[in-house]
Design a protein around this nucleic acid. Structure first.
Lengths: 120, 120
DNA sequence: CTGTATCCGATATGATACTG
DNA sequence: CAGTATCATATCGGATACAG
């Protein structure tokens, strides 16, 4: 806790810290496309993630006000997760980031294709 | 290494993974404002960072093609770091992120101010 | 000046098992 | 179904000492 006191001056740091868990962007992406997903559905769409980590990410996103948790005390319990307005705002920004990422990816692919044939 | 193979499907993940070291956004911010900085100057502008971490961040940014390293084999050695074009592109995106962060910050501040007087 | 090498401690992730 | 608890492991960040 005491180690991260200086570089939070930059607002980007704090927000990035909130969305940058290993699968956090991926989760946000899913929720923005599916509108609403249950815990198990998210788990199924993210092969390899453990319940512990997913819960952790979801809790932090909830605490940040990016995700809404709709708990239905039925039997068995049913929980729906969806983006809040803030979560949606973030998504638009992430899309901008996504575009840049894709563009770079294409540029790199060009270079690779021209000078290299078998990379594997 | 083997743990991060699935969620990189999302291009955002890979790019965020490259810029998300503890002080990475801060470093990019500095370089975008100062145009060119030496190793020691960056160290001085980021109190608390260790040479090891700074080197690590710089190396990764360099490997990602976001930062250019200009090494002058003088005595003593002089090294200048500056943003590449990609680094500049990223900065514009980060500014968008920054705006959102600032806006949220203000909104939160409003709420706090209305219901709370002394938080510290 | 600009790093690299090492050791250490904190944190986060993953797997598994168990509960309401 | 939706988590929580616990343990083991891996990685990361921090400090210090040393090198080109």
């Amino acid at each position: 806790m005491a180690a991260k006191e200086d570089h939070t001056q930059c607002p980007m740091e704090s927000i990035l810290g909130q969305i940058m868990g290993p699968w956090t962007p991926y989760i946000l992406w899913l929720l923005s496309n599916e509108n609403s997903l249950r815990f198990g559905e998210i788990t199924a769409r993210i092969p390899g993630i453990s319940a512990k980590v997913l819960t952790d990410r979801l809790r932090k996103l909830e605490a940040s006000g990016l995700v809404h948790r709709d708990y239905q005390p039925t039997v068995p319990p049913t929980v729906y997760y969806s983006l809040t307005e803030r979560g949606a705002e973030l998504h638009s920004v992430l899309q901008g980031l996504n575009e840049v990422a894709v563009r770079w990816d294409e540029e790199d692919r060009e270079k690779e294709g021209k000078s290299e044939i078998a990379a594997e």
